[in-house]
């Protein structure tokens, strides 16, 4: 159970994101038929410092939009996000403010093949973050880069490598190192292991829990993989169509789901004796 005294790393209240899908306006500039999609619908949650929250749900349930809003890549339609007790503003976010926020929240993306600049070596990628956020001389930065690489299970030799010379797992480790370079309070992992194969997945997950023990960073873990979620999260939030349908301690939700959607989500995990058409009402079996 979370200690009630633990300060909140992230607090999200009634977050809403509406996307307007606009059909391309005609040449005459006629009124375009706008269609709106509610990607995130009044979602609230909080993560205490050093804790880990998983957001699960099928594709299109709004979990990635939630992550993108938390790091400032998307602007919420309504609702508040507070990080480290500070309310987020959305207008006129300058360079300095963005740099400050970078030290609060970092993100690791799903695809390790496109989340690193192909024209930048691993060392220069980490160096860029260190230069930006800390006042360190060259020697200190080199030292810190070596320490970061070691922390994610790579070694100093990798600093000179370009991403194309690295495997998917190695790249994801670099992406994690880049995120950690800012020393954030919160690390968001948006399907961070989904594109890795299973043995590498396990290594990266172990790495993430090691890092949590070492740095007391909080995790927001976006995933559709319930086995992954059980391994890394304290609490869990189940989303469907932008809404939270169930929340609670990970073990409780996964072992004794209350909501019918969570039950179906769990029933859709392949296991011995599992059959895809076991639940005719489920719309999950196609995934």
């Amino acid at each position: 159970m979370p200690e009630p005294a633990a300060p909140l790393a992230v607090e999200v209240r009634d977050l809403v994101k509406v996307f307007r899908l606009r059909r391309s306006p005609g040449i005459g500039g006629g009124r375009s038929a706008a269609k709106t999609i509610v990607a995130v619908d009044r979602v609230s949650f909080s993560v205490a410092q050093g804790r880990s929250l998983a957001v699960v749900g099928e594709s299109g349930s709004g979990k990635t939009t939630l992550a993108r809003m938390a790091v400032g890549l998307e602007r919420p339609t309504a609702g508040q996000i507070a990080v480290g007790g500070r309310e987020r503003r959305w207008k006129h976010v300058g360079s300095r403010e963005r740099r400050r926020r970078a030290r609060e929240v970092q993100i690791v993306f799903q695809d390790p093949y496109s989340s690193l600049d192909p024209r930048q070596t691993v060392g220069r990628c980490l160096d860029e973050m260190l230069r930006l956020h800390f006042d360190m001389d060259h020697a200190r930065r080199t030292e810190r880069i070596a320490a970061l690489l070691e922390q994610v299970g790579l070694d100093e030799r990798h600093a000179a490598a370009y991403p194309r010379a690295l495997s998917g797992g190695q790249r994801q480790r670099v992406a994690i190192a880049r995120a950690l370079a800012c020393e954030p309070r919160v690390l968001i992992c948006d399907e961070a292991v989904a594109s890795l194969d299973v043995s590498i997945q396990a290594q990266v997950l172990n790495l993430l829990s090691d890092i949590r023990e070492e740095t007391a960073v909080s995790y927001l873990f976006i995933s559709h993989d319930l086995a992954v979620v059980r391994q890394v999260s304290d609490e869990i939030l189940v989303m469907k169509d932008g809404r939270v349908v169930e929340r609670g301690q990970t073990d409780r939700v996964l072992d004794d789901p209350a909501d019918p959607y969570t039950q179906r989500l769990l029933a859709a995990i392949p296991r011995p004796g599992w059959h895809p058409v076991a639940d005719p009402e489920s719309d999950l079996v196609t995934s």
Binding site: S95, S114, M129
Partner: peptide, 23 residues
């Protein structure tokens, strides 16, 4: 995503354009 990562990492827009996009 690498450009998004730069943005989230607090890299100023001008640097993202000149040191990541341009190369």
């Amino acid at each position: 995503p690498y450009i998004s990562a730069c943005y989230v990492g607090g890299v100023p827009a001008r640097s993202i354009c000149s040191r990541h996009l341009l190369p």
